[in-house]
Design a protein around this nucleic acid. Sequence first.
RNA 1: GGGCCCGUAGCUCAGCUUGGUGGAGCGCCCGGCUGAUAACCGGGAGGUCGGGGGUUCGAAUCCCCCCGGGCCCA
Length: 1057
Amino acid sequence: MPVVGRVEGRYNPHRVESSVKEYWNRIDLYKLVLSENSRCENAFLFIDGPPYPSGDVPHVGTAWNKSLKDAVLRFKRMTCYRVFDRPGYDCHGLPIEVKVEQRLGVKYKREIEERIGVEEFIDACKKLVYENVDSMTKWFMELGVLMDWSNPYLTMRDEYIESGWWLIKKADEMGLLDNEYRVVYWCPRCSTTLAEYEVEYSEVIDPSIYVKFPVKGCEKEYLVIWTTTPWTLPANTFIMANPDAVYAKILVSGEKYVLAKERLSEFLKETGLSEFSVVEEFKGRELEGLEYQHPLHDLIPLQEQLSKHHKVVLSKEHVALTEGTGLVHGAPGHGFEDYEVGLEYGIASAASPVDEEGRFTAEVGAYAGMYVREANERIISDLESRGCLLHKSTMAHRYPVCWRCKTPVVLRATKQWVIRVTKVRNELIEEASRVKWMPSWALDRLLHILDNLQDWVISRQRYWGIPLPIWICPNGHRIVIGDLEELLKYSGRRPGELHKPWIDEITFKCPKCNNEMRRVPDVADVWFDSGIAFYAARGKPFELKASEIPSDFIVEGHDQVRGWFFSLLRAGVIGFGVAPYKCVLVHGFALDEKGREMHKSLGNYVGTDEAIERAGRDPLRLWLLQNTVWEDLKFSWDGINEIRAALDVAWNVFVFASTYMNLDKYDPLIHSVGELRDHLKFEDKWLLSRVNKLVKEVTSAFNEYRVHEAVRALKDFIVEEVSHWYVRFARPRVWIEESALEKVAAYASMYYALKRWLVMIAPLAPFLAEELYLRFVKPAEPDLPPSIHLLKWPTIDENFIDEELEESMSIVRELASAAASARMSAGIKLRQPVKCITVYTNSERVRAALTEHLDASLFITNSKSLEVRPLDEVSKVVRYVAEPIYSAIGSEYRSLAKEVMKYVEGNAETVARDIVTFGRHEAEIGGVKVAVEPRHVNVKKIYGNNLVVREFKYGVIALDTRLTLGEVSEGLAREIVRRIQVMRKDMGLSVDAKVNVWIQMPREAIDVVGELKNYISSEVRALELTLSEEAPSRVSSNTYKKEWLIGEDKVVIYIST
RNA sequence: GGGCCCGUAGCUCAGCUUGGUGGAGCGCCCGGCUGAUAACCGGGAGGUCGGGGGUUCGAAUCCCCCCGGGCCCA
């Protein structure tokens, strides 16, 4: 006959986890789960945001990310969905290249081609990625993440690259693909353009100079500009002024300077000029078209070409009056804003005389070949020698640097491939707004980005990426290839693989002009790679219909609003005209204890390996998952320990329940809660109601992806409701020897609740749930599947939900708490029964609850009787007395103080009553009106004799501290029982072993406890029990003897088996 | 400099949507229990709810400003 299995010992996460891991391998859990779910009607399409495999061990934040995904996917499976669960890795990109450069000792990009060879380099990248992918996969599996690890999507695979090509071709067909000048961040060390998110800002010290630009045709008149980047001056094209600002022409030692009036005082302070006069004031717009001469025109050939543009232009937005002079030197080749303003004035050329490594080109003559930042000094001294430098100093400011190598970037105008997403902005906004964002502010962030939408620059001048599938001929004809087949059609050749350098070997004749077409050398930005995952992870894009595109659910950190969510959206709208996701959950960042970012260099970094090692998988997962999903998480070992402690309690609950169920051969299939319906007690019905409400709560939390609420509710239930409360009621019931229905009803209730709890905790703590399932549930129900992860999610049994009953229980709980507090101050331990507890309340609800559930109330308070009376009867048992606070009265009433004190002492009760009731007491003392306020007195409560009174939520309770002989003897009996139980435990006896007991104690004690001999016998399972003043005459060798002091009495207990 | 998030007990965090006497866990102090036991239970102390202003009879909660931390951008 199947019975409930036993859970023994202490919870040891590592032991549980390693045995469960081995079990899963043995039964091939993933395969079983797949086949279980293959029959499900509904599909759940999830797309894994691919982590970047730049390291071998995932960050705890990544562990959080994957745990969230795992919990949700497991829940979906249990609620019968076919889940698409292919994990992925984002394999391309500069961070991998930089790591490989370090391995190969590469300092400059050109070494890759000149010394290493592109083929070698790509192979090294691939090797690094595979190493890290294998290692990260191992750790994700260690965490219990149940996904298709045998088949992750890797963005570097040829089929994935083809999928990328498909989108670029699609963009071209839509007329969105372009090759044009763009001002981009450029890292001179990596020799590539950087996206905004590949740039970070750090403190850099730069020159700060004021430069005079001679106004044409006006002797000794100058436009004054300020700059921190002298190296951009060779490319100066125009000077910008704010049309609405007021400008001043000032006269300083025979020279006239033009600058914004508002900046004048700051300018004078910095330059140290003091003798000046204002010649003229005018609006900025009057400066428009004013021609000037470049101060270094004789040194820089490029300036010859640019001189035709050397005029003042206007810009409201880009000329700020918070720094500089209000006149801004404009170089469209070195600034986003400058470029824009240039376009407005029809200046399409964006002179950018800086090469890939940040050196000046021949166009700048004198400075050619110099690294731009190093040329600053020369440029400044040349300005000075020409009398055009007004002032020089240095300043520290935040300046963009490459996020990988920390080299200060330069801004360069270069030709880049862009997808003109600005043309589909409205669609982007519309589609983004249709998505469910959790929490909703994620949408606000994205809309803000879309408000300032820029075209998508997809090209990078590097190696390790998706090669752009664009072939051009010398006449500028271009063909965009959509997949390998199309490439074969044009070229007749299949490349070794689709990466550089192999792909670059493929050339073919231009269909239009018959010249040779070669691929453009660029690769795609990595964000392009991950942006197409929504279809590229699933197969060939042209096999998918638009209606099949949006995935049901994705979840990533809040940095991905601008990252992955944004690139997915762009790719979705370009490729299929839709947002490629229906619901997006945003999670927070894992920070260190102090809320700072974790960095290996700061020593505050915690890897998933260390966390698993120290905490265990389930405690780590639960701790991560209990954090409010979208808020940042502060790492804390103490926090993990708290969760660990809760799991200890949960484990012990199972030990408790399973020990007795197993002992009594409890079979849940025969004795179910339905079967025992009529025998369920108050606390049973309460537990069944609570657990069904828990199912409701956890289900809706999961359905709305509030995973943290599910964790917290499950934790609170097992700790607060089951362990702290229900078990207290259950304990005496399970000690009943015979197979009483009262006991079986407790078993049935516990089994029902614990099983449901286990199933619900399974997606969150999969190892622990499995272990307890196998030990506790499976032996009793052998027909259940071999793993808890194959069970269905529990349904809500509304019949068991009883709000009124729950409210009654919470009243009993309040009573118990108040009674415990009263006992405390009376010094009566809980084991000692008391005669009577009186509850004063005006609430009919409370009266009804306590009367109806008298047994429970008496049991939990260990009281012989309970009375409920109207609240105003409290006055019969409590009096308030005021005691004067002499210092307060003295300092306030001075000469009158003595009389006030006397008055308070004399009218202690009246004063106290008024203060309690009205907050003050007024009186006429010595002919003066006096108000006694709470600050003047201490109000003390005096209770009736032998009473301890406590206020509680529903009124007042009074505990009668007088004990009769009956109560005293019961208390003593329980003291004796407890000590015998300790001794049984010491002897290592099994719970149901029978014993013989001899108790030697004083006559008076025997008289007190004698009547309860049978009670003691049954509690301690004694065959024979002797109470005597004498020691036993013969003590056998297997007798355990121990001396105790109970109260004043010396008690010697002998136990033999 | 901008957008968004967070700031509540020593620590970690609920409560805020929809205003009505501020909660939990851990830690601490005191006590109890001992057939879940290197566990468990009860009680207690501990808070200008980041600061300031406003709306309101009433603000942790709604509005504005400021400060600190985070993410994203400039």
